[in-house]
Design a protein around this nucleic acid. Structure first.
Lengths: 259, 259
DNA sequence: AAAGATATGATTGACCTCAATCATATAAAG
DNA sequence: CTTTATATGATTGAGGTCAATCATATCTTT
């Protein structure tokens, strides 16, 4: 018995909410709560999964936590192996003690994950505005974690805005690891002004500035400029110098860390 | 073939790390990564689960995200039904627009979950220092979410410390919903000074102060005082007036919301 | 109003998961 | 060194999960 489209959509929207609230929902529970058969529950699950935001598992579905915890999503996502290699290169630049900043973005989340593998951390202070990074690093041995507060941006699961910028004022970082959505001859850029503005504020407080971008970002043009190439300490990327050159990006060897 | 105890412990420690990093790990993946049989993987899973920090699901195991996302844990945890009723009572006090603060603690996480059910929110600004609350509420329709930054406390998955207190200075809340670890005749108290101090700072910025504590907190004595009874707008609890009286807690009717 | 499209629930068979049991090899205890 | 305890992997049977198929009812389109 067919049912009206808007009802279907609403039910699936509700399913997304349920999964999101509970973190994990077994299929049987979905049937009970949505009052549908197992078959429909699975179909809904497939539909919601296709739209992103959840990942199915055997027996149910997991919330991707609006990408606050996009771990599964990420690992299967775009250029993940490259991001992991970039992350390893980045982590090698982190000393066992000191103060660093980790930005938002999946590449930087990979850095946080890689940082978990380090066993030699003594007293590393890590500040971040990224809730995914915070969740990964929370409770990591040898790490004192700080979260820079601000307005929550759902898309990035990160904190931004004027309060975030202001909160940066009493920080001073030995190193910062930043992501970006595009890079061209002029430097790194992002699609949202609030992100770019926040990143610029980070730069003001940081000694060593590392941008971590995979090759897919080459030549991608996004409106809000973060920093010109001369301002950063190094670019960590899987892209070859030749690939970079095609987009007019020419960096001295000491400013290019190949992953 | 038996294997040395310290190796077993180490492997299980590693398993906990793997699950923690990945959020979810299927049994087959555990076998592959730990190079053990399925039987051993399940045994390890059971052992790690017994020590907390993960919850098993059909087909694998979920990280509890160091309680940043203790959703499953909570729901099966202590006094959860009471917390849900308290949360519903609390949410009824929240208007469809305005600015509120949500504290750390499982009871307040229940408030956040209950808030998700509200469909009438227009422009509600929610500030919190609790990452679990942030994850639940992130992207909720009609909610503008802010996170008050600070030092990450693993046990509570919350942000505290001097930076958090300072970040509160430019806020002003219509209402705040706070938890606590104990209540007696003198008022509400907490076990950690940093938490109590932060909560006192919240009180300074808040018009209507609601404490949400279930009956198990009655008479429990914890060292760091947060606020005397006269300072709060109302106590939301499942405890009966008689129960409260046994601990010397006497509140006027308008200050007691029974859940 | 008629025809077509499709959402639903039931059924089925293949596959997977899980707990229990058991033999065995090796660590730990004496 | 001998004995005991136990961690491991293989096996097995019960039950759960899933995708595919199909008939049916009802929404949508013309």
């Amino acid at each position: 018995m067919r049912v009206a489209q808007h009802l279907v959509d609403r039910r699936r929207e509700e399913l997304r909410g349920l999964i999101r609230r509970d973190g994990f929902l077994p299929v049987a529970e979905i049937c009970r709560r949505l009052k549908v058969s197992e078959a429909t529950a699975r179909r809904d699950l497939a539909a919601v999964e296709a739209n992103g935001h959840i990942t199915r598992t055997y027996g149910g579905a997991l919330a991707d936590y609006n990408s606050a915890f996009a771990s599964l999503d990420e690992r299967t996502g775009h250029a993940w192996p490259a991001k992991v290699r970039i992350a390893e290169r980045a982590v090698a630049k982190i000393r066992s003690k000191g103060t660093i900043f980790l930005d938002a973005g999946t590449t930087i989340q990979a850095v946080a994950r890689a940082l978990m593998h380090r066993r030699d951390l003594i007293q590393l202070v890590v500040a971040t505005n990224n809730l995914a990074v915070a969740s990964v690093l929370g409770g990591a041995p040898g790490v004192e974690l700080h979260v820079v507060g601000g307005t929550f941006l759902n898309r990035q699961a990160a904190l931004m805005g004027p309060r975030a910028v202001r909160a940066l004022e009493d920080w001073s970082f030995d190193a910062a690891f930043l992501g970006g959505e595009g890079m061209d001859d002029a430097g790194v850029s992002n699609s949202h002004e609030s992100i770019a503005e926040f990143q610029r504020a980070v730069l003001d407080q940081t000694a060593d500035i590392y941008f971590c971008l995979d090759a897919s970002k080459i030549g991608r043009s996004t409106p809000h400029r973060v920093a010109p190439w001369r301002q950063l300490t190094a670019l960590i990327t899987d892209a070859t110098p030749r690939q970079l050159a095609t987009a007019g990006i020419e960096l001295p060897a000491r400013k290019l860390l190949r992953a």
